[in-house]
């Protein structure tokens, strides 16, 4: 009998995790360097020079740093929500927006824009809209007691379609001067994002929360009956995962609108690279999601500068070919 050891099972996920842990700060540094005013090494060294009062770097860091951190946190939140939604619905096609949370947030945000709100008024109403949609889906799907993934999925998809119709309605009656900012919000855009502190706190709490259930998620991903017979109170776990995933999605959408694709492909990219265990998949998804969005946002800022693009366009443009290539390469892993 060939002895089985920890090392053989965890080697790959650990390598992936270490790689991502190095990639994350590297991508943030790269993004800070990208922009209309390039930063050279002399500028960076200036940080340590207390005597120098001019500091052109300060201004750049004050503009680029919060936005880059927001991008990282939003990407991490979206990828984490994607992992949770895919397990909750036991469906590889699930993404954070599939249950209509972003739709609810979008309707509320567009209405707020129509009313002339901006800043905290806008983010606040987007968050409330997301929570409203979350409770709507939850109570309708919960209705008769049977809370199956199919029932939840159908309820969510139908409510999302409803929000979609309302979004189109608002867009068609809105005055032209509002349309540009509305479209940017709908496609996902980080330029209005508030300070990254709140998002960082939520991301950390969400990481600890989902880390606590990571081992159970491995089993829930396979089958509900198996999970139940292996000692998991499936009903309670699914409600907790739903609430957790919804709140994570709500905070991501509130920060940056509905950014496509990060939540869907990040978990799959990691599964394709051999990370299956949620105890590795969850932290790895947060790192990779963050990296993807940081880079995508840097491209969105600089590609057609001074024209800024919605970051959602870039994530889809990069994400689609990358995902198809990886899936083609490893046909047996998915």
């Amino acid at each position: 009998m060939r002895p089985v050891q920890h090392s053989t099972l965890y080697k790959r996920p650990i390598i992936v995790l270490i790689f991502l842990a190095c990639l994350a700060p590297a991508s943030i540094l790269l993004a800070l360097n990208m922009g209309s005013v390039p930063i050279n090494i002399a500028d960076w060294l200036q940080i340590f020079d207390a005597a120098d009062q001019s500091r052109p770097l300060d201004m750049i860091l004050q503009l680029r740093l919060p936005r880059t951190l927001s991008a990282f946190i939003t990407g991490g939140l979206l990828a984490l929500a994607g992992v949770l939604m895919q397990v909750l619905l036991r469906n590889p096609l699930a993404d954070p927006y599939i249950l209509g949370i972003s739709g609810g947030a979008a309707v509320a945000a567009l209405l707020a824009m129509l009313a002339g709100l901006s800043g905290y008024g806008l983010t606040g109403s987007a968050f409330l809209g997301a929570l409203l949609s979350m409770f709507l889906v939850f109570s309708i799907a919960h209705g008769q007691g049977a809370w199956t993934p199919t029932r939840l999925l159908l309820t969510g998809v139908v409510i999302a379609a409803g929000w979609g119709a309302i979004i189109s309605f608002i867009l068609s009656i809105s005055p032209a001067r509002n349309l540009h900012s509305m479209l940017f919000w709908l496609m996902g855009d980080l330029s209005y994002s508030p300070s990254p502190t709140a998002g960082a706190v939520i991301l950390l709490l969400a990481l600890v929360g989902s880390g606590y259930y990571a081992k159970s998620l491995n089993i829930l991903a396979r089958s509900e009956l198996t999970a139940e017979s292996l000692g998991i109170a499936v009903g309670h776990l699914r409600i907790k995962i739903y609430l957790l995933a919804s709140i994570i999605t709500a905070s991501a959408v509130t920060t940056a609108g509905s950014i496509a694709f990060v939540g869907l492909i990040t978990p799959h990219l990691l599964r394709l690279s051999g990370v299956h265990d949620h105890r590795f998949l969850i932290p790895a998804a947060v790192l990779l999601g963050g990296v993807i969005l940081v880079l995508a946002d840097a491209v969105a800022r600089t590609w057609l500068a001074p024209q800024q693009l919605p970051v959602g366009v870039i994530t889809a443009l990069i994400g689609v070919p990358l995902f198809l290539y990886l899936m083609h390469k490893s046909a047996h892993n998915l």
Binding site: V4, H6, T8, L9, Q86, V87, R90, N91, P92, G211, Y212, Y213, A214, K215, S216, N218, I219, A221, R222, S223, L225, T226, S229, L230, G231, I232, R271, L272, H276, D277, R279, N333, L334
Partner: peptide
């Protein structure tokens, strides 16, 4: 159980080890 599903990838050993779930705590390996 009768039907066995696996919507997400996993290896044989990872799957077998799930049998130990009732004996390991949340943060335990």
């Amino acid at each position: 159980f009768q039907e066995i599903q696996d919507p997400f990838p996993s290896t044989v050993l990872e799957t077998t080890l799930m049998g130990r779930h009732p004996y390991t705590k949340s943060w335990q390996w």
